[in-house]
Design a protein around this nucleic acid. Structure first.
Lengths: 338, 338
DNA sequence: TTAACATCCGAAAACGTTTTCGATTATTAT
DNA sequence: ATAATAATCGAAAACGTTTTCGGATGTTAA
């Protein structure tokens, strides 16, 4: 009933704990014969090292932390998926925390992870995060840190992102090429970089193609969700009667808009063409199916962990490591809404 | 630059490590004066106990494990959300692993969690899991275990579920009350209990209301997803021309069917009424909006952790604890598809 | 004055592992 | 034969905490 320990094995075999430990880890100063003996006994007793002791001794937890704004979200859950899979392959487990888009909570989660002594941290910032002293602290403690998707330029660490600006540019350009002349934009909150970049891409595309930018065509969707899309679409219908295209910052907002138009008998894409963003998989299931920009969540998660892994390894071996900013490709997906 | 330890504080104050430890934990055999001194010094140095040492000494990790079939799934991500929130409130962190609906992987994940010495495990079984020896082992190791949603009746532990059978009964009954006479069922794979129970509820409702059960109206959707719904709907159109209602095992399958009908000009609900299951939030965003059964994911997560917490506490204090099976309420949501 | 008791503190063991370094024995070279 | 070298092992320290138990000191009662 008692736990099997190195001591147990050592006693059974009449040798020292040291030798048992070394035998199991294939140290060169243990004879083949004893190694075989030890391994056999370990197997027989189903010995599993006590991670608590190993952690204490090696100062490593083989665990990483992940902080995201919200779990219930197609894009982020895809990222989680990529991270967990990759982490497991390398023998790491993942502790997931949610910031609920709150700066205060995000700070607390960082503290939690640090006090749990995770070997590395991955984070996508909350929208409301402007102060980044909590992240600076992580750097000071020399805990490897990788940011993804919602990043801050103010902190020096590896970043895995898409080129929001270019992707938004392409999306808007696609609307223009479809013949749209008055294109509205449902943008996100003012703060997060994604929201800014997508807006800038939209604006640039207009200007590059001889359409003048009109700020009254830009609507803010604070939570970039379905209801925001509905609200914005209704407001748009009140304000303008000449809009023939919409570039929405997320698929959800776009789907909200489509619902409004469907209900009012406004034809999509004949009267108004609509572009979403993310390629959330329902976007192909609605009527009309939604044109959008594919945002590679799984891939982003995978790359994020891989980079973190490199940095954790470098740290363990006291080597320098290059901090990288990786931009992943997005893909324009043309469907029936444009 | 060095880590702050009890020893550090003790040396600074010229007292023993023991006293420092006891002072910080408010032991009664330390004078108020020294307690104050110690706490002040600890605060000054920003002392944080080394969890590795604490874990080793207390044999607890204050970490729990969660195994689910897939993360990228609205229902499960809602459960995750409930669990994480509740766990954090009680000072626990959550390690999340995915079984990808594979028994082999599920077994491996259990081993991983056990070897990480989590204080408790929550699991929703993979569809293909029939052998449950890996769960039996968890029980033997006396690691508290709570199952939710996809459970096995063969293992003796607490379970948090909905009454799938009753919910499916209500859903089918609703179709019948709407006037449907020939009701098809898109069911899930043969194995998981949910799938069986929902099927049984469907069948019972038919029989109780004078409709005869026809096995040719039951289609299997192996992955219960959008494409399965499309496939099943197409097959149904080939096989039958008199079906006027469908009860689908998930919203996704129902949405797939709706897409097919929309395309073929078959009117929903006039020609065919459709019920989904889960109340995935997109179900209100499609056209027509989908009638469904609300499955309380967040609540389920919350209750699951709460039960686990009780059992972990009982274990720590060597008390007996009652294993509970909790059934959560579902709610019929009537929308435009019926 | 001594006995009884309360108050406060610290030595030391324990948790289970990893790793350094020295000791012992066996082997080879001279 | 002795010296040098290789092969094998184990004692012990260390990681940082928690907790038991006994000792010291001071206080009160008889």
């Amino acid at each position: 009933m008692k736990e099997v320990t190195l001591k147990q094995i050592a006693e059974n075999l009449g040798i020292s704990i040291t030798t048992v430990s070394k035998a199991l880890k294939d140290y060169p100063d243990v004879s083949k014969k004893t190694k075989a003996l030890v391994k056999k006994e370990a197997k027989k007793l189903n010995y599993k090292p006590n991670v608590f002791a190993v952690n204490l001794r090696t100062r490593e937890s083989r665990t990483v932390g992940l902080i995201i704004p919200e779990v219930v979200h197609h894009f982020f859950s895809s990222v989680i998926n990529g991270i967990i899979e990759q982490a497991e392959k390398k023998g790491y487990l993942v502790i997931i925390l949610q910031s609920n888009e709150s700066y205060k909570l995000e700070k607390k989660q960082i503290d939690l992870l640090v006090s749990k002594r995770v070997d590395g941290i991955m984070i996508s910032l909350a929208n409301k995060t402007v102060d980044i002293s909590h992240l600076k602290r992580v750097k000071e403690l020399e805990v490897p840190l990788v940011m993804f998707d919602k990043i801050s330029k103010l902190i020096d660490c590896s970043k895995i992102v898409i080129n929001d600006r270019a992707a938004a540019y392409e999306a808007t350009k696609h609307l223009i090429e479809r013949g749209c002349k008055r294109i509205a934009h449902f943008r996100g909150a003012l703060l997060p970089q994604n929201s800014i970049d997508r807006f800038l891409g939209y604006k640039k595309a207009l200007e590059d193609h001889g359409l003048k930018y009109d700020s009254s065509l830009v609507y803010i969707c604070e939570n970039v969700d379905y209801n925001d899309g509905i609200r914005a679409a209704n407001q748009l219908l009140k304000d303008h009667d000449d809009v023939d295209g919409i570039f929405a910052i997320t698929d959800l907002a776009a789907i909200g808009a489509i619902a409004v138009f469907n209900e009012k008998g406004i034809r999509v894409p004949d009267d108004v063409a609509i572009m979403g963003f993310s390629n959330w998989f329902v976007s192909s299931a609605i009527t009309p199916s939604l044109s959008t920009v594919d945002q590679p969540g799984y891939e982003m998660g995978k790359r994020t962990f891989k980079q973190l892994f490199k940095e954790m390894k470098a740290r363990r071996e006291n080597e320098e490591v290059e901090l990288k900013t990786i931009e992943l490709d997005t893909k324009l997906i043309k469907r029936n809404s444009t």
